[in-house]
Amino acid sequence: MRPLLEVKDLKTEFLTGKGPVRVVDGVDLVLNKGETLGVVGESGCGKSVTSMSIMGLLPKGQSRIAGGDIRFHDQSLLSLSVKEMRQVRGNRIAMIFQEPMTSLNPVFKIGNQISEALRFHKNLSKKEAWSEAVGMLKKVGIPRPEQIAREYPHQLSGGMRQRVMISIAMACNPEVLIADEPTTALDVTIQAQILELMRGLQHEQGTAIMLITHDLGVVAETCQRVVVMYAGQVVEEAEVGMLFKQPLHPYTQGLLGSLPQLAGQKKRLEPIVGSVPSPLNMPSGCRFAPRCKFRTDACLEYQPPLLEVEQGHKCRCILYGEGEQ
């Protein structure tokens, strides 16, 4: 089966006073129809920049895509004109943002904000769009949708607003939904509801979801496949069960090790020492090497490629590379 969305060797750069800085360096992603792909990594590892690159929302003049391709239905999104891209955005590829508190326009009624996308993409009349918007609110589990549609964002709680954001994103029935940390700003109990809601809508409409998060619990709960990113690169990719059972990359192991466990023996959490290297000053060898427990001298010089270690499990580490070389 051909993938729905394919990111090939994406290289995104920010233009600074000191010249271009590469924040995403050769990322490959594949998203199939109806699946949920988790993209995990620390802050600043390039996961949000990757999603902005896909949406074509990078600030012009401050950033550029220096290489690679983004293909949607085997058509390059990078070659589309601004106008064509607008037709894709929100209509076929939609996005949910991290901050539901500020992602809604404070001066418009909820119903108008949902209607907006529908009127623009589906050419509905004001009335049709409004009733569709009310229907969407109902779908995302908002009680009294007719009334809520007439209210303003400040009258809703965070969880309600994120539901509204989801209803805006899903209004045009997109094929791909990019969710950039959709639950980070919410209470844990609301998180579960929101994830459940997204799963339900996915089941109903067959949407493929790219879930960007740093929460491994959320990944275990919702995703089929996971991509772990570090310093602008993919370091490991696997089925979700495989990744949690047998993480290969030392970084992934570190991420799992720094996760509190309820079951089993109590032991100290193991943080990963150090922090993500600055994109201005990347290590010449493996990018994780300065923080890695298993570092060898070779790691500091040699940058390992992303290799398929076993069926469906890729890893970028010198420890697993020797067999194939």
Partner: peptide, 8 residues
């Protein structure tokens, strides 16, 4: 940004 993301 959200407005841009819905293609306005």
């Amino acid at each position: 940004e959200a407005g841009r993301a819905i293609g306005l």
